[in-house]
């Protein structure tokens, strides 16, 4: 599923609404839509690590892109180990793509936002394992839409990488933003192979859709 054209203030009404990997992402999408800030869900994937033969072995798909602000937003609402992992990925992204503007929204930021909006009742639902809700999708779509937020543990990390690699391979992210150069095609083909192998892992995390 290509999320690129989804979510522009149509999240609630659009039957093609992205399948968010986590309740917190769905809530942030609702907040953005409420304030008429256009958003796209995981539209781009940025390769951030390559093997010696040029294959993508690590990539990063920020949760949201806000086209009017030219800003990516990544939500972290899970445990500290994943926050550290995301921080590391973020540093790498900034090194490799200095022109890309990205904001990491920590659990604390999001919690304060919900407190401000009086959504206290959602706090327990939106953090930790109870906030996880990876909706059922076709295997390929699951790989594309999944993110580390909806998973836990080492398997989740593997699945997240698979998802990101799959996104790189299938979604064809904005060619002007990421992964340029002559090696791009080779990386893509390699990524597609990797994704094909790892897709089953990603799909295995599918669960009920968010309420």
């Amino acid at each position: 599923m290509d999320h690129r054209n989804l979510g522009d203030n149509q999240a609630e009404a659009d039957p093609m609404r992205p399948a968010f990997a986590h309740h917190s992402e769905a809530e942030l999408a609702r907040i953005l839509s409420f304030y008429e800030v256009r958003w796209q869900y995981e539209p781009d994937t940025f390769p951030i690590g390559w093997s010696l033969d040029g294959a993508v072995i690590e990539s990063f798909s920020p949760d949201f892109y806000l086209p009017d602000l030219d800003l990516y937003v990544e939500l972290t609402t899970l445990k500290q180990t994943l926050v550290r992992k995301k921080n590391r990925k973020l540093r790498r992204l900034r090194e490799l793509y200095p022109d890309v503007r990205i904001k990491l929204f920590y659990a604390r930021d999001f919690r304060m936002l919900l407190i401000k909006f009086g959504r206290l009742g959602l706090l327990d639902e939106l953090s930790g394992t109870t906030g996880q809700a990876t909706p059922p999708r076709e295997p390929a779509a699951a790989a594309i839409g999944a993110s580390a937020d909806g998973m836990a543990g080492a398997d989740a990390d593997v699945a997240a990488v698979a998802a990101e690699v799959a996104a790189e391979a299938h979604v064809a992210p904005d060619a002007g933003r990421a992964g340029r150069g002559r090696r791009r095609g080779r990386r893509r083909r390699s990524a597609a192979r990797t994704a094909a192998v790892m897709r089953v892992d990603a799909a295995s995390f599918a669960g009920p859709a968010p309420a």
Binding site: N9, S33, F34
Partner: peptide, 14 residues
């Protein structure tokens, strides 16, 4: 209106 206000949730927009 502010996000989360009960009077405005039906519209979904500020």
């Amino acid at each position: 209106s502010s996000y989360g206000g009960t009077a405005t949730e039906s519209s979904g927009l500020v």
